[in-house]
Design a protein around this nucleic acid. Structure first.
Length: 233
DNA sequence: CCAGACGTTGTT
DNA sequence: GTCTGG
DNA sequence: CCAGACGTTGTT
DNA sequence: GTCTGG
């Protein structure tokens, strides 16, 4: 779940909304961010005085790993076990981040079909997903990587999956980034399903299936004959 | 003591 | 089927 | 997450 | 690195 998403909001607007220091980096709207690619992550500066935006590899590589894990990257971490699992525990305590997005894709599967849907906020605002990051230094090239935390789905998301990404409103995001907080009892309550009333889902074309297709058409409502389908079923 | 795993999703 | 690449 | 490859020897 | 299994 949550294995593809979008970030097409202007960098300047993201900086205003999430309060990170202005930076200049190559910025293009993304309509199809896939595992192993770079994700935009908000972290606190070393002295915790300000927020910074960095691009991290999606798929967490534990610091102790001899090699960057091949095969299925660790793109998600379960909220219910993240405080205990050796792979995530240390990052959960000290290396939390916000992964910025403005929509994501889920595939709805039945007997015959598997159709991608685009899920976003009804007001189309960007949002922050709860993430963890890690620094890996066991090879010639050091790597900073990240993973997105998942939780139980709200009713809308349950139509697709039994998990959904943790989305943090600004107040909770502040807590999530606070380096003074390390106790699971304080952090785990943040990792709840997001209110479904604020979200919407509509079917899109199969373009998104192809990682190389990073075009605006990925999020265009897909017309099935006449009516575009949303969730009225 | 050392060796080997360390994850999620979905599927069985 | 399973693994790798994006 | 999905798509695409999945192999060797020998020759160019 | 840390935990589990043997």
């Amino acid at each position: 779940m949550c294995g593809r998403y979008t970030l097409r909001t202007e960098l300047k607007l993201l900086a205003e909304l999430y309060g990170f220091q202005p930076i200049s980096l190559p910025w293009t709207p993304r309509y199809n961010i896939a595992p192993t690619q770079l994700v935009a992550a908000v972290r606190l500066s070393a002295d915790a005085s300000s927020r910074e935006l960095d691009m991290l590899r999606w798929g967490l590589a534990p610091s102790w790993a001899k090699e960057i894990p091949k095969g299925r990257p660790m793109i998600n971490a379960r909220a219910d076990t993240v405080a205990e699992k050796p792979t995530f525990r240390a990052a959960f305590k000290r290396r939390r981040c916000l992964i910025l997005a403005d929509g994501f894709y889920e595939w709805h599967q039945d007997e015959e079909t598997k159709e991608p849907y685009y899920i976003r906020m009804r007001d189309e605002r960007p949002f922050a997903m709860a993430g963890l990051w890690e620094h890996w230094d066991k090879g010639p090239q050091p790597l900073e990587s990240a993973t997105i935390i998942t939780t139980a789905p709200n009713e809308l998301m349950a139509k697709f999956h039994h998990r959904m990404p943790v989305i943090l409103d600004p107040d909770l995001a502040d807590v999530w980034l606070d380096p003074g907080i390390e106790e699971p009892e304080e952090l785990l309550p943040l990792l709840k399903p997001y209110p479904e009333e604020q979200m919407e889902a509509y079917v899109v074309s199969a373009r998104v299936n192809h990682v190389k297709d990073d075009s605006p058409q990925c999020i265009e409502p897909w017309k099935d004959g006449k009516a575009e389908r949303t969730f009225d079923w």
